[in-house]
Design a binder for these strands. Structure first.
Lengths: 332, 332
DNA sequence: TTGTATGCGTTATCAA
DNA sequence: TTGATAACGCATACAA
C-alpha cells in the first residue's frame, strides 16, 4: 500500500493524498473525506523511510546512557520516553556500557542514523578530548545533557546541584552530632565529582574530621562494600555517620555497619526505590530526576522548532533531602 | 556528503562506491583502497533513510514493555540492547504504560515504523481480542515474546516456568514447617496468573491452609502492603510464611510483619537488586531473565536471516530459587 | 572490474 | 483546488 494506490483508488493525484496526509487546508472537504476514507479502509500509513528521505527526519531522538539496567537511568529513560511520545517522537536507545572503549562512538553512531536530537544522561563518555566532536554535533542537532555540564556552545545542560545537596547532607548529619562522616563513592563522573566536592566542602566548613580513611572508593557490590566496612571497623576508623554517592552503597554499608553493632545515621543519593526497601528505610538526596527530564524534553522540543527561542545553556535544580528512618532515629 | 560526492572524488561511479560500502568482492583492490580513503577522509556514512527506502529496513528492532522504570523490564531492555548492538541492530524503545487504553496501538505504531522485528517483554496489552492483529503482524516480521505465550502461528514465546517455580517455593516453605502461606500479587498478567497457579498448586498438593484471606491482591506500594498486613494481623489471619509475585511486595510485607513481631520466612520473585537490599536479604525466585533475553535475541537474529531454520514456537526455562536470609533463618 | 539506469515512496515546487 | 514532476540518496540489475 503506497500513496499511489490510495491516489488511484480516489482518482486523485498523489500530491492531493500527500496534502490530506499532512493536513494541508488546500484541499476541498469532499476530496479530503474521500481520501481519508480510503486511507482508513486500506489501513494505509506513509512509508517512514521515504518520508525520512525527503524530510531528513524520522522524528526520532537518540537517548544515550551507560546502562538502562541502572535504576537511575531506567527512571530517566522512562520519563523521557513517556514525554517524547506525547510529542510524537520515537526514542532510539543506546547504552555505552561502563565506558570501556566504546566511548563517544555511540554518539557518533547516533548521528549517522540522523536522529533529530540527542539526550545524554549522566556521563557515558569523557568530555575532555571529545569537545571538538561534541561541538560539531551540537551545531547539527539539539544536544542536551542531563546531569552533566558540557560547557560547549550549542549544548544544553540540565543539572541538579548535587554538590550543594551533599553539602547540606553533611550539615544535616552534623546536626545529629556526627563528627566523622564516612563518604562512599564508586566513580568520579561529573556527578560523582560534584557529590564528593559537596561532602568535602561541608566537612571543611564545619571543621569535621578530614582523615583520608573517611573517603572511600568502592565498587557497587554488596561484597565490596562489606569488605571495606569490615576493614574500617577493624582498623578502628572512627566513623559516626555514612554518606554515599549512591543509594545502593548506602544500603550496603548501613547493613554491614548495623550488623557489627555500629548503627549510625546514613544518607544515600538518588532517592531510588532501593532507599525504601532498606531497613531502616534510607534517607536519600533526591536529585529531581523528574524535573531534569521534564526540562530536557521541553528544551529539546523547543530547539527542534523552526524558530527556536534563546534557551539557557545551563539549568540547575536544587537537590532535596528526603528524610527517612536511617536518619531520623539518630536525631536528637 | 553523499555517495555521489565520494564517487566524484574518486573518479568512479556511485555503483562502485556502493560496492565497496557493502563489502562486495567485485572491486579491484586499488579502487577499493581509493574509495575507502575518500570515505574516511570525508567521514562519510550512507544516509540511513535512503538505504532504508531501498532495502525496506533500517536494522532496527522495536522493544515493547509497559515501563522501563520497572527493574525487571529495565534489566531486560538492557540485556536486549546490549545483545542487539553486537548484531548491528538498533533498538526503538516503546513503553505502553500500565495498559490504560493505549493497548496494542504501540505495537501497531512500531509496525508502521517498519521495524525489522519486535520483542515484547511481559504483558503490555491483552492478547485476547488482539489475536488477529498479532497474527497478521507475525506474518510480516519476527515477533518474539518474553514471559508471555501468544500461542499464535509465527510468534515465538520465550518463557520461564514460573508456575513450577512458585510451586517449588511453596514446597520449600512447607519444608520449614509452614502451613499457612500468605500469597501477595499485584496483577494477573500472563506471568501473574502462572505464579498464582503455582502457589495454588503447591498449597493443594501439600494440603496446606487454603483460606481465601491468604491470597491477597495489593498495589505495588509500601503503604498499600503495610495497610494490608496490618489488617490481616488485626483479623488474626494466621499466616506463617509469605510468598509474593514481586520482590517489592515481599520486601514491603517482610518489613511490616517483622515490625509487628511476626517474623516469618519470606520469598519474593524476580531476584532483582531489591532482594539484596532488604534486611534480612530476600530469598527470591530467579526467572532467568538473562537466559530469556539471550534466547529471544538468538531467535530474532535467526528469523531475520534469509534462510531461517525452524525454531521452537515456545522455549521454556526453569526458575531458580535463590536462597537468602529471609528463608534460611527459618530453616530447621 | 566498472558504469548506467531504474526503483524505492515521500514531500514540495511549480504550473494549470 | 488540483496535477505533473523533480528531488531525496541509496542498492542493484543489467550492460559494457
Amino acid at each position: 500500500m503506497t500513496i499511489y494506490d490510495i491516489a488511484k483508488k480516489c482518482n486523485v493525484s498523489i500530491a492531493t493524498v500527500s496534502r490530506v496526509l499532512n493536513g494541508s487546508d488546500r484541499v476541498s472537504e469532499k476530496t479530503r473525506a474521500k481520501v481519508l476514507a480510503a486511507i482508513k479502509e486500506q489501513d494505509y500509513a506513509p512509508n517512514p523511510f521515504a518520508r525520512g528521505l525527503g524530510l531528513d527526519s524520522m522524528k526520532m531522538v537518540g537517548v544515550l546512557c551507560s546502562d538502562v539496567a541502572d535504576a537511575f537511568y531506567a527512571k530517566a529513560v522512562s520519563l523521557i520516553e513517556h514525554a517524547l511520545q506525547k510529542h510524537n517522537f520515537d526514542v532510539m536507545l543506546s547504552c555505552t556500557g561502563e565506558s570501556n572503549g566504546k566511548d563517544i562512538k555511540a554518539l557518533r553512531y547516533l548521528m549517522q542514523k540522523h536522529v533529530d536530537a540527542v539526550i545524554i544522561i549522566g556521563t557515558p563518555f569523557a568530555v575532555q578530548g571529545n569537545a571538538a566532536a561534541l561541538k560539531k554535533i551540537a551545531e547539527q542537532i539539539p544536544l542536551v545533557a542531563i546531569n552533566n555540564n558540557y560547557k560547549l556552545p550549542g549544548t544544553y545542560s540540565i543539572i541538579c546541584d548535587e554538590q550543594a545537596g551533599m553539602r547540606n547532607a553533611v550539615y544535616a548529619l552534623s546536626n545529629t552530632g556526627c563528627r566523622s562522616i564516612l563518604y562512599l563513592y564508586d566513580a568520579l563522573t561529573y556527578s560523582g565529582r560534584h557529590k564528593l566536592n559537596g561532602y568535602k566542602q561541608g566537612v571543611l566548613e564545619l571543621g569535621l574530621d578530614t582523615q583520608p580513611a573517611l573517603t572511600q572508593k568502592t565498587p557497587r557490590t554488596f561484597e565490596a562494600v562489606a569488605a571495606m566496612i569490615h576493614r574500617l571497623l577493624k582498623q578502628k576508623v572512627p566513623f559516626d555517620a555514612i554518606l554515599a554517592s549512591e543509594d545502593i552503597l548506602a544500603v550496603a554499608a548501613q547493613r554491614i555497619a548495623r550488623r557489627n553493632n555500629h548503627g549510625v545515621p546514613v544518607i544515600g543519593c538518588n532517592n531510588s526505590i532501593i532507599a525504601e526497601c532498606a531497613t531502616p528505610t534510607l534517607t536519600s538526596l533526591d536529585n529531581r530526576l523528574d524535573r531534569l527530564c521534564e526540562t530536557a524534553i521541553k528544551t529539546i522540543i523547543q530547539l527542534m522548532q523552526s524558530e527556536a527561542p534563546a534557551l539557557p545553556s545551563k539549568t540547575v535544580f536544587d537537590a532535596n533531602l528526603i528524610e527517612r528512618e536511617s536518619f531520623q532515629t539518630h536525631k536528637q
